[in-house]
Design a protein around this nucleic acid. Sequence first.
DNA 1: ACCCAGGGTCATA
DNA 2: TATGACCATGGG
Length: 225
Amino acid sequence: MKLNRRSLLTVFDSLLTAYGRQYWWPGETPFEIMVGAVLTQNTAWTNVEKAIANLVAHDKLSPQAIITARKDHLANWLRPSGYFNVKAERLKNFCRWYVEAGGFDALSKLDIATLRDALLSVNGVGPETADDMLLYAFDRPVFVIDAYTRRLFSRLGFIAGDEAYDDIRLALEDKLGAEVGLYNEFHALIVVHAKTVCRVRPRCDDCMLRENCPEGRGMQQCLAP
DNA sequence: ACCCAGGGTCATA
DNA sequence: TATGACCATGGG
């Protein structure tokens, strides 16, 4: 298999048929989505939900509240999401930048490249976190590349898997064209597939999106009933 | 007891 | 530029 538009859309259709629309990102507001993007770095989403619930319970789910909160307090609320000291610092960095930049409305006026560079300038926001924010908070056509995306497309033979982040992202965006709705649903479906298929389908307890799944396993086997 | 999770930064060579 | 160490909780 090779990386082209038709192959990609075939995979997308398989996932969409299997799981249906996902209506991502889980989060009420753009700011909550961005907080979640930082907290979910290398962390299970169920743990992130607990941390966000802590912030809400203490009325701290706002940029100003996070900026003014004591770092050790913030770290304690973030404890369930892991790396809590690192993430407390990263959230503070992000919120300081966010307020300084004028908040959501001001940032929304920037073009994609400028906004992406600005996000990447924040210590603690790397390419995937920035792209989560761009796609799901700012509604921009940016294809998010996470570990699952690399595994899926490399096991399907579309890519080698060890390419640089932007090489994969730009290749996918080139083949698919700038389609926010498609990117939104595609990334969500890849993640949902990885999170649920192994438990839902007994034959797939070695889901191909998991690290130790045998090589060469294709979409058909993995999605077969 | 072990593996994994919707990464990113920093020091080193 | 490319590796390795480090960050840390919670579920399977």
